[in-house]
């Protein structure tokens, strides 16, 4: 159908983004293709290759799956910041990723986690790393005849330290900025494999490479944290909008990274 519609059709997942957009008359697709009956797109499976979440899995189902708290803790932690429970009952992970709003939580999380996106189209199946999937604000590499079918997260080592921090005006709002972070600690006690996903305060979901580099190989002391926060601030490419200045959002990124690093360290002590 997608192919036949020749760009005139839109896939309908939970409708929590698409329907408001249509109500505002910003989109008026001639055909809506409802994916809710496609069972193959729903469900969460976990094995030693990692976690696979079907595109049509709702936020609610992800939130309720206790296994994810250890198998993909950043995913679990992010969910409670996504909208309100009524919206989480309908909204899907596939809809959110396909919509590619840089202010949404999950795009930042999948990028931070080196997840892969599974896509099916007229040319068959392909798998795209998250950092290549998002091209710009509300833009992905999906072509008009393609459907996102699942997102696949690599296995999560039990010793990994992580934290999710965001700041929104009200609970459930899109955040001014957010940080999805993990790293490991080597035998020497130095930071390894730092991954920092940036949410909001950016035009495209992405990692903060400069700040990551400033952490790797360092001991996580006050000086390292402050330096990384500083770099994260300048690395964020926020813009002014009606809610906040770019300067505020950039400063916030630094603050959130600092808080995330401390929260991750506290988690280490609790281990």
């Amino acid at each position: 159908m997608l192919m036949e519609a020749d760009g005139e059709a839109k896939l309908l997942a939970g409708g929590q983004t698409l329907l408001p957009v249509m109500a505002f008359r910003l989109a008026a697709p001639a055909i809506l293709i409802d994916l809710s009956g496609v069972q193959e797109l729903k469900g969460i499976s976990i094995d030693d290759t990692g976690v696979r979440i079907g595109a049509m899995t709702t936020w609610r189902d992800i939130e309720d799956d206790q296994r994810l708290r250890t198998a993909a803790p950043l995913v679990s932690a992010a969910i409670e910041h996504i909208a309100h429970y009524q919206i989480r009952n309908r909204g899907t992970i596939g809809g959110s990723l396909s919509h590619a709003d840089p202010a949404a939580e999950m795009p930042g999380v999948v990028v931070a986690c080196d997840a892969c996106l599974e896509i099916v189209g007229s040319n068959g199946m392909r798998s795209v790393p998250a950092n290549e999937f998002f091209l710009g604000p509300l833009t992905t590499c999906l072509s008009a005849d393609e459907v996102l079918t699942a997102v696949r997260f690599p296995p999560w080592p039990a010793t990994r330290l992580w934290a999710f921090e965001e700041f929104a005006q009200r609970r459930g709002d899109f955040a001014y900025a957010g940080i999805a972070l993990f790293h490991e600690t080597g035998a020497t006690g130095l930071v390894e494999n730092a991954h920092i996903g940036l949410i909001g305060a950016t035009s495209v979901p992405r990692r903060l490479g400069v700040a990551e580099a400033a952490l790797n190989g360092r001991r996580l002391d006050g000086e390292t944290i402050a330096a990384a926060a500083q770099l994260a601030s300048s690395e964020a490419d926020a813009e002014d909008d009606i809610h906040a200045s770019a300067a505020y959002r950039k400063a916030l990124v630094g603050t959130l990274l600092e808080r995330a690093l401390k929260a991750a360290a506290e988690r280490a002590e609790a281990l």
Binding site: R170, R171, G172, F174, I242, H243
Partner: peptide, 16 residues
């Protein structure tokens, strides 16, 4: 007018 929805015009929610 730069606000057109309750996502931009932030009224308190019940838990605030």
């Amino acid at each position: 007018l730069l606000v057109g929805s309750l996502a931009d015009y932030m009224i308190p929610i019940s838990t605030d």
